[in-house]
Nucleic acid binder design. Structure first.
Lengths: 136, 136, 136, 136
DNA sequence: GTGGTCTAGACCACC
DNA sequence: GTGGTCTAGACCACG
């Protein structure tokens, strides 16, 4: 699980978790039957209150996305929908990129610099990731 | 002004307005000195409370994007040079890019495709701009 | 009429006018039948909008304190209540002085300085006043 | 804490709370480190909305009078030296004194009586203070 | 239980 | 007509 919380976006933290778990399940990053981190582990990893993590899992369970097995952890349920088509996924990403482009414009950062910045952050991300993530 | 609000996203309505006005200003859809819809008109169009619209305009004014003239309306200000140092600005953008990278990871979109998607959106943005922005 | 508006107190301007006119009538500074300044003159003197001055007079008229004679001005009606007793008047002032004392404490201004400051402002007030006010 | 709110005065409720808490802190009724009633308790006691109480506390925090500890309550801070220059502070006080002088004029209270009234209230204030303030 | 934020309704001051 | 402020209700994050 590689969740990323944006504390400045105004979106409730528990909702960000719900959305990202659903997205990961939809994208196939998480597979049915797979275990999610415990409430305590998730709270520690994201530096949030345990209540907030528990609330996210409760919401996911009420939506039928995961199953909380008492004392045994939280597991992803069988997919109800098929994984998202590639076109849909890249469209989602495009709208996020548009927001970044607007921000770059306001920050007066030229296109070339934005592109090289993305390459740089991608390299840094892959560096952090190697060793603790299974996706090559 | 054609704003679109997503009431289910969890993002505060006033922030959605702020972001979209900034995007329109960046894209040149709105020009310096141009009047934005009145607080009342915007509230009615979006079916939101007047205060929510007013708060969005207040936020935009505090960020220096618009100027609220008491009793006269809300006007887009001329683009002012950002008072932040370049390093600070590029750091801000980097953190936004990191979020996009995480999202791409969840959506299982490879790095090369992310980069080409950014190039594509940049080209589209510049294309929209050239039609209505005075700085070619 | 010597009205004094405090724009920072949070009290609506029209209410401050209403309160002060009623206070002046109660104290005997204004006498029945006496003319108040016109809406236009009052607005100019206090640097406020004419609507605000008009609203104050309308409120005073609805309360029966003054009478707006169409095209002829605004006149104080006959007293409904007797002028305030001296003890009541000085009690009102005492509560205002208490607020000033608290403020002086927070501003860390010693008692002696507060007293001399009051003497100084009194002298300045009498200086400004001489010539345009009838109270000796 | 025994606050008294005047709902008819036109003075915003949250400001009345701010002023009275400041007065209590100045008089020593409240001591540094002491807890103020919780937002909910205060709101219930005064029959006002929680937000109004919360706003008063937020204002007091921004003025450096109290400290709001998230999830733990609101506590009076130790008296900090005012960051304003002496001239600025005494100027602020002067403008408040001017308002009092105008009020005294309306109430037809002579200068000598105003001065002696101030001396009297100062003595009363210091008297109240000496019983519960640690700085004699 | 605690404080903080977002949305809303009513009213104020100004043009 | 315009924008701004005060009060309120519901929800969020934290202990």
């Amino acid at each position: 699980m590689m969740l990323h919380i944006n504390f400045k976006s105004g979106v409730p933290v528990y909702l960000q978790i719900v959305q990202q778990v659903k997205a990961a399940a939809a994208a196939g990053t998480l597979r049915p039957g797979e275990a999610l981190p415990s409430v305590r582990a998730l709270a520690e990893e994201l530096r949030i209150n345990r209540n907030t993590a528990a609330r996210a899992y409760a919401e996911l369970e009420s939506e039928g996305v995961v199953e909380n097995r008492h004392g045994a952890g939280c597991y992803l349920r069988a997919q109800t929908a098929s994984p998202l088509r590639h076109a849909v996924r890249s469209e989602r990403l495009a709208s996020e990129l548009d927001a970044v482009i607007v921000q770059a414009h306001h920050l007066q950062i030229p296109d070339a610099e934005l592109l090289s910045l993305l390459r740089e952050r991608l390299a840094a991300f892959r560096g952090r990731q190697s060793g603790n993530d299974r996706t090559p």
